[in-house]
Amino acid sequence: MDNIIEVKNVTYEYVDDNLTHSAVKDFSLAVERGSFTVILGHNGSGKSTLAKLINGLYKPTKGDVIVDGMNTKDELYETEIKRRVGMVFQNPDNQLIASIVEEDVAFGPENLGIEPDEIRKRVDESLKAVDMYEFVKSTPHHLSGGQKQRIAIAGIIAMQPDCIVLDEPTAMLDPKGRKEIINTILKLNREKNITVILITHYMEEAENADRVVVMNDGAIIADSTPKRIFSDVEMLKSVGLDVPQTTELLYSLKKNGFDVSTDVISIKEAADAIEKALHLEEK
């Protein structure tokens, strides 16, 4: 199996108030190239630390993080790892550097010393990939949150990464903005074959993932397909996460004696399950 990222027995410690805390503990995770992985966890579960460990922004206290065969501890690969593993953060405003969209998207490639003509090409392509090409000359300040976040994503794609890590990219957006971002991420994964690691606490966003990893207290407590994870409502609630209302509904039905499966996410699937349960009763 071709793993783009390998986190091997990593512990990350930081000092606060003279006390040593560990944000992640003896943590191991391998991410397959081209996959779409969602990491779920409440605030303080260590998921953001993990994101920063993956692209070398943080260095492990113990253990190793290997990106495409390169150890993040090796200073020689510092920039190359950041190019290959792009990061998108929560607040779009704090990621955009220039006051013209195209100049912002060009920032990454410019740092890499790419030829001007090639940068121009990449900027246009990246903006098209996130459906923001019509705003090429706009000012980020005049765009909506979802649009700004898509510009931030374009800025990452312009560096032609193999993998994108998104750290709660939708937390500050309205429902429309959230949909825009999730659709953009899916498109990049499916069409450009970019490995996606999406960190979030919105369960619905995990619906289309290949794999869902649930984190709590710096460790993995579940790692499976979205359906499997969703059906374990009790486990999710025990770590402070909530489930989509569809799952919630079926879970409650089951508790009330209905014979329904709880591994559903979409509205259609939920209707299927309820219909089936009611028909069974009739027989």
Binding site: N55, L57, T79, K82, R83, G86, M87, F89, N94, Q95, I97, E102, E103, A106, F107, G108, P109, E110, N111, L112, G113, I114, E115, P116, I119, R120, V123, G155, I156, M159
Partner: peptide, 16 residues
């Protein structure tokens, strides 16, 4: 965010 976008100062930068 700038560090994540490979910013290391002016050296070796190009301009679009």
């Amino acid at each position: 965010a700038m560090e994540c976008r490979c910013y290391t100062g002016g050296e070796g930068r190009t301009r679009m």
